[in-house]
Nucleic acid binder design. Structure first.
Lengths: 229, 229
DNA sequence: ACCTGAACACCGTTCAAGT
DNA sequence: ACCTGAACACCGTTCAAGT
């Protein structure tokens, strides 16, 4: 329900990173956090948020339904881990680039693209824990903005403004993606109500929008305001 | 799951608007869409999204669990109706004000405030149907922007940019609201990781932010860009 | 250390039935 | 026209038990 704190700090002893599985070739069969998380992502991609069920996840892993609970505290933790696993950033980490604007665009567009590849992720992000990969992105953002001349007192405001924009844009876009047909139907229904909604009906608000272009344009405007020349 | 289209167009005959209840004083007891929606909002306010259950809702209404299904197709419709009921705008509807900036600020801040009063609503909005109250707000927004000089070709982009910003800001804020304690704990944990996240640790990103101020500032920047001088 | 089945207290929704 | 209980096919999670 509520947003929760940092990384995965287990209460129970978990599998050591370096330990060799007892079966020599059977690393496919043994349960592990890594396999659980990867399979959860597959399941979420295929079936959406409501499709992720502890029972179905276990099934897909060829395990008994309750086996998951040795590796994981509860379903929420599965969500947290799946989410963060999808948000890793392998990009230039430099905070001292001359091209701060390019660096911000690169990271934020990569972020958005990653979430659109996993359409369940954007809606989940603001409600869930801030995992290490998200924190790294925020840290990078802060570093770039600071390097670009944003005053320390304005840093949090600037970071959150960009976060808000990216989150909002991506959640909206992801849900439109999921339901092109629905939006077309809605626009059609709008036509019958054109006395009530003439402006958005005429603009065909629910159809054919250039989401990527609009995203970049809004981001430009925001950065113009947030970063002093 | 997917965003769906316009208003509540029932397939089944619903209670007529003007019909008089057969019990003279007993309008409290009879089930009706209005009572169902109002009670659903109460329940959501009290227990959150996961707290809304068809069975519990019926209980609160003093009805049998299955009685709801005569008035409503399914749980999703309850969500749609509850959501839209919370988003009504009683404000200046004029699209030809001289003070377009003030009109936009008023509507958007009212929108945000309404959603913060019902913290479950913001996360729900982008995933659910576009009810009549939301469409009215979008229509008003379009009318004001057009009146302020936004070209017809840029109208959709401008509307969605503002939508994205409001949605993102409110969802984030609502979830921080729900979990002050969690965020404080997270910030404390960040302190232990200050080698990994020095910038946001020092800025105390997870603490004490001026959300209202940041919202207005970002909105100003966006409008500066979206509306030609 | 790792996995399991049975069991509990829930869900949303269908259906056939009541008034 | 409006409401109902029984029943179905699911949930997440606890617990005591297996290897």
């Amino acid at each position: 329900m509520a947003a929760k704190g940092g990384g995965a700090q287990g209460k129970r002893p978990r599998r050591q990173a370096g330990s060799v599985p007892s079966m020599q070739q059977g690393s496919e069969r043994a349960l592990s956090i890594e396999r659980i998380v990867a399979t959860a992502v597959e399941l979420l991609d295929a079936e959406g948020v409501d499709g992720l069920t502890m029972r179905r996840l276990a099934d897909r892993l060829g395990a008994g339904a309750m086996s998951l609970y040795w590796h994981v505290d509860n379903k929420e933790e599965v969500f947290d881990l799946a989410l963060d696993s999808v948000l890793e950033y392998r990009g230039p980490q430099g905070g001292e680039t001359a091209d701060w604007r390019g660096a911000i665009f690169h990271m934020l567009e990569d972020w958005r693209a990653g979430m659109l590849r996993h359409p369940w992720s954007a809606s989940l992000l603001p409600r869930r824990a801030l995992g290490p990969n998200i924190l790294s992105r925020l840290e990078l953002l802060g570093r770039i903005l600071y390097g670009a001349g944003v005053a320390e007192a304005d840093l949090n405001g600037a970071i959150w403004s960009l976060w808000n924009y990216v989150i909002g844009a991506t959640i909206t876009r992801a849900n439109f993606d999921l339901s092109d047909a629905d939006m077309a139907a809605a626009q059609q229904r709008l036509a019958h109500l054109s006395e009530k909604y003439p402006t958005i009906e005429r603009a065909r608000l629910l159809l054919d929008n250039d989401w990527d272009g609009a995203f970049r344009k809004g981001l430009d405007f925001l950065l113009d305001g947030l970063v002093p020349k």
